[in-house]
């Protein structure tokens, strides 16, 4: 399978994603430069990686969403192609309107960089079908703007449709504010679009693919084919 990793000026998890996709998952993986607008139809998965695209100027993801590659990505997603946005990638997908809601400053105002626990809330998506419903995963976060917010109507819709894919939780799967690292509404750590082919999440599954790095709970998420 072919996988692509988009590279913006300021992306800094592109190599982590490339390593996980190529060396761990064994995909034929390529970097995709932000200023190009190639046809992506031969790809099985596109990752929008973490980092600080365009220095997070104005708002995280606000400038990246106008990059030429985003036109290709929109077309690819509209045809059902699988898109995973991690951290800054999640912020970009929200800014681009490919996912609902937005990411705001962490409630603590601190940059949080540590392993967290997330619960699989919907195990019937292309990204989570290798997990059990309710399974608890240990995956690292590294962000300053990860507090997911959306209006009440959107939140109801997300819950109703099963678009909340991950929630922050305790090691045993309980939801509480003390295990929510950024103050996200309803403990949301990851959401999908209505078609479930676009997933955005603040935790970094590409950094949790090898036991040597502390966890391999993220590996099954990347095994999309």
């Amino acid at each position: 399978m072919k996988a692509g990793v988009i590279v913006f000026p300021g992306s800094n998890c592109d190599r982590d994603a490339y390593h996980a996709l190529r060396d761990v998952l064994g995909y034929d993986t390529e970097y995709l430069w932000h200023a190009d607008a190639p046809d992506l139809s031969q790809y099985g998965l596109i990752v929008v990686p973490g980092g600080f695209s365009y220095g997070d100027y104005l708002r995280p993801g606000a400038i990246a969403r106008f990059a030429p590659i985003m036109d290709s990505l929109r077309e690819y997603a509209a045809r059902g192609g699988l898109v995973l946005g991690v951290c800054n990638g999640f912020q970009i997908l929200c800014e681009a309107g490919l996912l609902p809601g937005a990411l705001t400053r962490n409630l603590s105002l601190k940059f949080r960089c540590k392993p967290v626990y997330v619960r699989v809330e919907n195990a019937e998506t292309p990204f989570t079908c290798r997990y059990r419903h309710g399974e608890v995963l240990k995956i690292p976060i590294a962000h300053g703007d990860g507090r997911y917010v959306c209006d009440e109507a959107t939140l109801q819709q997300l819950r109703r449709n099963g678009q909340v894919i991950f929630r922050y939780c305790s090691p045993t799967g309980e939801l509480s504010d003390s295990w929510n690292p950024n103050g996200s509404v309803d403990h949301i750590a990851g959401v999908a679009n209505e078609q479930f082919n676009v997933l955005g999440m603040m935790p970094h599954p590409e950094r949790a693919c090898e036991l040597l790095l502390g966890s391999e709970d993220g590996r099954r998420l990347l095994r999309v084919h």
Partner: peptide
């Protein structure tokens, strides 16, 4: 289009 994010 750019300066504000109408969601937030």
């Amino acid at each position: 289009k750019l300066l504000a994010n109408p969601v937030i």
